[in-house]
Simulated scan of single mutants.
Amino acid sequence: MTITTDPADSHRPLVDRLLTHPYLPGDARDFHALLEEVNGPRHRSRHRSRPRNAEVSNYLERALAMVDGVPLGEHAASWMSGLRTAMQARIVDTAHSVASYRTQDGRHQDFPSARQACTTGLNADGHSETLYRALMRAEAAAGNRTGLRSAIARWQDANRHLTRDQIDKKTQTLVDELLAAS
C-alpha cells in the first residue's frame, strides 16, 4: 500500500473473502442451515415460550434485574440502532416469558414479579404491545384495579400520537374487555 492508496480499499480483499467463505465454527458446513438454526422461527418460539420451572424463571428474573432502561442509552449513535433493536427484542421476550410464567395459576404465581418484569421490559422498549398486554393481564389477575387503570393509562400515553386505525387491535380489545369486567 502506498501513501496515495485509499486506506478503505485495503480491507476489501478481507471483506470479499469473509462474504464468500464465512467462518463457521465446528463442523457447520451449510451456512443457511446454521442461520435457520440460530435465527429461525424455531429459535424465536423457544425464547417466547414460558419457562418450564421456577429455576429457569429465577435465572430470567436475575437477567432482567441487570437491565436498566433503554439499551445503549437514549442517544446512541445511529449505527447502533440494529444492535439496540435486537437487545430490546430479547429483553421484551425475556420479560414476557417471566410475566407469563408468574401469572399462571400455581405455587409459582407471583404478581409483583410479573409486574416488575413488565415494567423492566417497558423501560427498555416503551412501545411493546406484548408487554402492555401482559402488564394489564397481570394487574387484572391480581385484582388490582388501580394498577390496571395505571397500566392502561401508560399504554394510552405511549400511543397518544397514533390514530385509532394505527392502534393494535389486540391491545384495544383487551382494554375494552378488562374495563368491562372491572
Rank of each mutant, 00 (worst) to 15 (best):
M1T: 02
M1Y: 11
T2E: 11
D6G: 01
P7R: 13
P7H: 13
D9A: 09
P13Q: 04
P13R: 02
V15C: 12
D16T: 03
H21A: 10
P22S: 06
P22D: 14
P22R: 01
Y23D: 14
L24C: 02
G26R: 12
A28G: 02
F31W: 10
H32S: 07
A33N: 13
A33D: 15
L35M: 13
E37M: 03
E37G: 04
V38G: 04
N39W: 07
N39P: 00
H43G: 10
H43Q: 08
R44G: 04
S45A: 14
S45W: 02
R46C: 05
R48C: 09
S49A: 13
R50H: 11
R50Q: 07
R52N: 12
R52H: 09
A54V: 11
E55L: 08
S57I: 02
N58H: 03
Y59V: 01
E61L: 01
E61R: 00
A63G: 07
A63R: 13
L64I: 02
L64S: 09
A65I: 01
M66C: 13
V67G: 06
D68C: 01
D68M: 05
G69F: 14
V70H: 12
G73D: 12
H75C: 04
A76Y: 00
A77L: 06
S78D: 15
W79F: 14
M80C: 11
S81Q: 13
A86I: 04
Q88C: 09
A89I: 08
R90A: 12
V92S: 02
V92Q: 02
V92Y: 00
V98R: 04
V98A: 00
A99F: 00
S100E: 15
Y101S: 08
Y101K: 06
T103A: 01
Q104N: 08
D105Y: 03
G106P: 07
R107T: 03
Q109P: 01
P112V: 05
P112F: 12
A114F: 03
A114N: 03
T119W: 07
G121Q: 14
L122Q: 09
A124L: 15
G126I: 06
G126C: 09
H127A: 13
T130Q: 05
L131Y: 07
Y132G: 01
R133A: 05
R133Y: 02
A134I: 05
R137F: 01
E139P: 05
A140M: 03
A141L: 06
A142N: 11
G143W: 14
G143Q: 14
N144P: 05
G147K: 06
L148Q: 05
L148G: 03
R149S: 00
A151I: 04
A153Q: 10
R154W: 13
Q156N: 09
D157E: 14
D157Q: 09
A158D: 04
N159K: 00
H161P: 01
L162P: 00
L162R: 05
R164E: 14
D165F: 15
Q166M: 10
Q166R: 08
D168W: 07
K169Q: 11
K169A: 07
K170P: 02
T171A: 13
T171K: 00
T173H: 07
T173C: 04
T173M: 11
L174P: 13
E177L: 06
L178Q: 11
L179P: 10
L179D: 09
A180E: 15
S182K: 06
